[in-house]
């Protein structure tokens, strides 16, 4: 490469002073090196500052999963049919703090006379779309890629979804309030892994 430059440089710079662009001379090399270092340093500052700020999201961890009250046990019909409930909690979005905001939804399902409730995340484990109940009420269907799940969240093969609907930890408090462990799981993988 240096041959190439040298050749052209000379062809056009007949009267150019000896030391200035002469590639072979130590002075020429030094000048180039210093020029590159200075220019590089000067440019690195804005690029570095930009990347530093741009990578800020990587410093931020997901909010801690916790039990959130979703419904009253007695208000959930004990007919084995899942029903959708909003999950409401305080949420912080960068600089804005939202108080008691709906942040997602769960399906709760109670068998006849049962004192326990099954909770399913409404987020499809395939690609994260919102899974809906079929109008017939016989199964769940994801509107994006037609993954079908049974009413207890089981996978119906063949399915684009790699796993069954994500069951959420669920407990019933002393006063009969149903609390769900609000968590998100990685989409698109067979194993159920907590996200974040």
């Amino acid at each position: 490469m240096s041959d190439h430059e040298h050749h052209h440089g000379e062809s056009r710079s007949g009267a150019v002073s000896g030391g200035s662009a002469g590639d072979g001379s130590r002075r020429g090399f030094l000048a180039k090196a210093i020029a590159l270092v200075c220019g590089g340093l000067a440019t690195m500052v804005p690029v570095g500052a930009g990347l530093w700020a741009f990578l800020d999201p990587l410093r931020r961890s997901a909010s801690v999963a916790k039990f959130l009250p979703v419904a009253e046990l007695t208000a959930i019909p004990d007919d084995g049919v899942p029903r959708q409930y909003p999950v409401i909690t305080d949420r912080i979005d960068a600089w804005t703090g939202f108080a008691a905001e709906p942040v997602g939804a769960v399906y709760l399902r109670r068998e006849k006379g049962a004192k326990v409730v099954q909770a399913l995340s409404a987020t499809c484990p395939h690609a994260g779309c919102f899974v809906e109940m079929e109008p017939t009420g016989r199964c769940f269907r994801c509107p994006c890629h037609n993954s079908i799940f049974t009413l207890d969240g089981g996978i119906v093969a063949p399915s684009p979804s790699p796993r069954a609907m994500d069951a959420l930890e669920c407990r019933v408090g002393k006063n009969g309030e149903v609390e769900v462990m609000w968590q998100k799981f990685r989409a698109g993988v067979a194993a159920k892994e907590v996200q974040g």
Partner: peptide, 27 residues
């Protein structure tokens, strides 16, 4: 009064030093 020079590296060197100086002032 002086012989001609090439933009690279002679003038680029001075430019680069000046750029670094500007950035140093800002910092």
């Amino acid at each position: 009064t002086k012989p001609d020079a090439m933009f690279w590296p002679d003038q680029v060197l001075k430019d680069a030093v000046a750029m670094l100086a500007v950035m140093a002032v800002v910092l």
